[in-house]
Design a protein around this nucleic acid. Sequence first.
DNA 1: TCAATATTTCAAGAACTATTGAATCAATAG
DNA 2: CTATTGATTCAATAGTTCTTGAAATATTGA
Lengths: 119, 119
Amino acid sequence: MDETEALGAFAALSQETRLRILRLLVTSGPDGLAAGAVAEAMGVSSSNLSFHLAQLERAGLVTSRRESRSILYSAAYPVLADLIRFLMRDCCQGHPEVCVPALEAAPACCPPEKDVPHV
Amino acid sequence: MDETEALGAFAALSQETRLRILRLLVTSGPDGLAAGAVAEAMGVSSSNLSFHLAQLERAGLVTSRRESRSILYSAAYPVLADLIRFLMRDCCQGHPEVCVPALEAAPACCPPEKDVPHV
DNA sequence: TCAATATTTCAAGAACTATTGAATCAATAG
DNA sequence: CTATTGATTCAATAGTTCTTGAAATATTGA
């Protein structure tokens, strides 16, 4: 992920509705959710939701696919991982005190049975 | 870090000049850099720089202290760590495929000699 | 105290982003 | 083929953020 992509991702995440949409989609799994379901969960109009989903998609944070009449949106997990990496790589550069505490919080998210390299 | 703080941090990072300022300050170490030095490095006017530094400070990503005539700005490492944690905790929730790849990139940033818990 | 330096604050305008409701487009069922 | 459903696009407006240059503030040295 380069600076331009990171800027786009941060801009996408800097709006309350969009941050909440992304969190919903991440926890909804790779199959995704129909735009209508997301709109209902967020309590916003379909046109407003469409606007925000388009921003998230332009930032690469979500992907969409049509399934019959619905359009299903899902979180782009690899791009999220890229963004975390960007923060660690480009912002921690030579400053482990930034990302060590972040990593210490990771086990809650990443189950230890996965064979992750010793950091 | 709660949603509101994260929104503020993302907004602060979604502007090119500010993202570059933060990266400069992170790599400049805890002693920080005078506002004037940052302005010169960024090639922007002092009043514009002041505007962006204020945004970064309001977001909690940098701190400032006066030293003689200069005001020294430095990166708020713990807040950056909080932000990485926020992305991992609130966005990876139950989806290790998001943060495992991110963690795999971490060694480059966090030297292995530090005794970090096995993730 | 006065001048110089470092920085911030302010006001105006430009540029960008978000919201709304109406119109449009795509897919399906009858 | 028409009506219905699910979603997007568009145009107008409202709101927010960025940039600029001038004025103000704080600190120091002569």
